[in-house]
């Protein structure tokens, strides 16, 4: 993939990611999140991970985002009124986040493989749905089953927590 496209999608993803955090209107945040994830899935595809890219769109844009928007509408959340910001906490939080980023930059710099350009694949034909699926049902069978239990627990949880109450 050409660097221009990479930087374009990365830029879209980061700008809208930042918009999620900066927007004061939850609906705008949620919509920014959708765009951000679109950019992310484009990056996945640029990495030849077509399956993951599509799953990303399906699960996040299709399901998770709808859930978020639905809840925001249900609760009728408006633009929040401007609250007094605790300046010390704000600056402190910003500093911690910045420090984390600097640390990540250092670590990337230390990683020898980071300068590596795209290695070419041995086979041109990508069959990643097949490969991921095969791994999932053979080698990763046990974690896969555990994920099943996890989803069951989540289902029970959602039912228990949002069952209608008698008033």
């Amino acid at each position: 993939m050409s660097p221009i496209l990479f930087w374009l999608f990365a830029f879209v993803m980061l700008v809208f990611g930042a918009a999620v955090v900066i927007n004061r209107n939850p609906i705008a945040s949620a919509l920014s999140l959708v765009v951000c994830f679109m950019g992310l899935s484009a990056l996945f595809i640029s990495l030849d991970a077509f399956f993951i890219g599509i799953i990303q769109v399906l699960v996040y844009a299709g399901a998770v985002m709808v859930l978020f928007l639905f809840i925001i509408m249900l609760l009728d959340l408006r633009v929040e009124e401007r609250r007094k910001i605790n300046l010390v906490a704000f600056v402190g939080g910003l500093a911690v986040a910045f420090a984390l980023f600097v640390q990540i930059c250092f670590v990337v710099d230390q990683l020898g493989a980071a300068k590596q350009a795209f290695p070419s694949l041995r086979a041109a034909k990508m069959d990643d749905v097949h490969n991921v699926g095969l791994l999932l049902f053979t080698n990763y069978n046990l974690p896969f089953q555990i994920i099943g239990v996890l989803v069951l627990v989540a289902t029970i949880g959602v039912v228990v927590l949002s069952k209608r109450e008698l008033r």
């Binding site: 555990i146 994920i147 996890l150 627990v153 949880g157 927590l161």
Partner: peptide, 13 residues
């Protein structure tokens, strides 16, 4: 990761 998340998920509820 998955077993930890299973535990965490049930504790959420």
């Amino acid at each position: 990761f998955v077993s930890l998340e299973l535990v965490t998920m049930s504790f959420y509820v």
